[in-house]
Design a protein around this nucleic acid. Structure first.
Lengths: 142, 142
DNA sequence: TCTTAAGTTTAGCCTTGGCTAAATAAATTT
DNA sequence: AAATTTATTTAGCCAAGGCTAAACTTAAGA
């Protein structure tokens, strides 16, 4: 069997990795957003989540269902959404990474507003090692 | 009508952008890969494309069909795939951007091997402005 | 309280991008 | 030339993540 996607060749590894990262991206975004809303407003409602994510309500509802299924969030019907400990932890991690990515982009000369936009897509593909390098670089800058 | 996904709020813009970028990502990867294979081997066969992208044959076949539908590639049944002028142009653009992203990551201290992996996901979210900033930064470092 | 307004969920559709299994075509070997 | 191997495509499945329209709950106002 010369072809076996479960044991990818050296060449294809980075594509497989990128796809894996992408699969987490949406969940990470929702978790972070729910964290933000709770911090700001005390609770995260479907409508607010949808509005800020730029999607229709039912899309947010589906995403929330998936978060619950994966143990990242909890909610009772027609009530606000809250994060589990695991969700909370992910939100913190994601928020910190987001900040580092934005700061690094700014540090190398990207306008802040552009950095904010691009970071939203970039952050999900920044590995531990790369994040560590970013933080070290930023620490070295002052 | 307070909610209208087609005119996203300021808050949600960056998510909409990230989703748009993601939608192009797969096409960009295939186009670049086809370009690589043609450069290396003179033609791009389905099996080779699939192998290097880390997917099963039929997945590559489907992607190729979409490339053709969008005017980026051409092929006759059971024959190799080739790029249109538009596809060629995209391949060049993507390749250049990829190089810049890798070099920037290396320049800020990311190990080259990690940079190669992470760049694969990151590159698709690097806007013109950010790319310009990267190139300027790299030129300054020379 | 009862009606209306606002918010949430459910139902059902679409596309993308994965997959496996089967059919078909091309190339190679005997 | 025929048979076998190799390569490609087709068929059909699945999940994710979009959407709209309709149903259902909750909250608010008359």
């Amino acid at each position: 069997m010369p072809e076996n996607p479960s044991r990818p060749s050296k060449q294809s590894l980075r594509f497989v990795r990128a796809r894996e990262a992408q699969a987490c991206a949406v969940m990470e975004d929702y978790v972070e957003m729910i964290g933000d809303l709770i911090a700001e407003l005390g609770e995260a409602r479907t409508a607010d989540i949808a509005e800020r994510m730029g999607v229709a309500h039912p899309t947010a509802t589906k995403a929330i269902a998936r978060l619950k299924r994966e143990g990242l969030a909890v909610s009772r019907p027609y009530r606000g959404v809250f994060l589990t400990e695991e969700g909370e932890a992910m939100a913190h991690r994601v928020r910190a990474r987001h900040r580092s990515v934005v700061e690094l982009l700014v540090a190398v000369g990207v306008p802040r507003e552009t950095a904010e936009i691009d970071a939203e897509g970039i952050e999900h593909h920044v590995s531990q090692q790369t994040l560590a390098a970013f933080d070290k670089y930023l620490a070295g800058k002052e």
